[in-house]
Write a protein that binds this DNA or RNA. Structure first.
Lengths: 71, 71
DNA sequence: CCATTAATCACATTATAATGTGATTATTGC
DNA sequence: GCAATAATCACATTATAATGTGATTAATGG
């Protein structure tokens, strides 16, 4: 996950699904401000917000061992 | 990502690496309280905290399209 | 055992994420 | 063009994550 790949991922996915920020914000039950800042990488979102967006967007959040790490 | 799989993942990984909560907290530059609650699923951590832990633990956070979602 | 450290927990404080509001600037469809 | 909606932005407020402190309870090694 690079610098703001997360916000980009959400924005790209939203565009793919053809929905607006206000609509997605409503569906995920977060404010447009929160979504706007998140997409632009201007925030440090909570896990809760990420989950709510992931849910609506059909995305999943994973935390796994780096394939590149030495085991 | 199930209910508290995230906290579990972090705890399990920490154990694998054989380090304590206080030590990991120090390495990741977060408080032991924050780590403790996160591992137990008693918090709604910020992305920042997750990144710092992932960095130290050799984990990566991914947000991707669900394989099960209809495309 | 028992001393030492780790983990758990409560509670107060501080920092900041999330929201609300209103304005401005794109963007889009007619 | 221009009306309507979307996206961007500033700023104040509210909710809450993160921290600090100190205590209690496990766990661990000597």
């Amino acid at each position: 996950m690079l610098v703001n790949s997360l916000g980009e991922t959400i924005k790209d996915r939203r565009k793919e699904l053809g929905i607006t920020q206000p609509h997605l914000a409503e569906l995920a039950k977060i404010s447009t401000n929160t979504l706007y800042k998140l997409e632009r990488g201007q925030s440090n979102p909570s896990l809760n917000v990420l989950y709510k967006l992931a849910e609506v967007l059909g995305l999943e959040l994973k935390l796994e061992v780096k394939k590149t790490s030495i085991e």
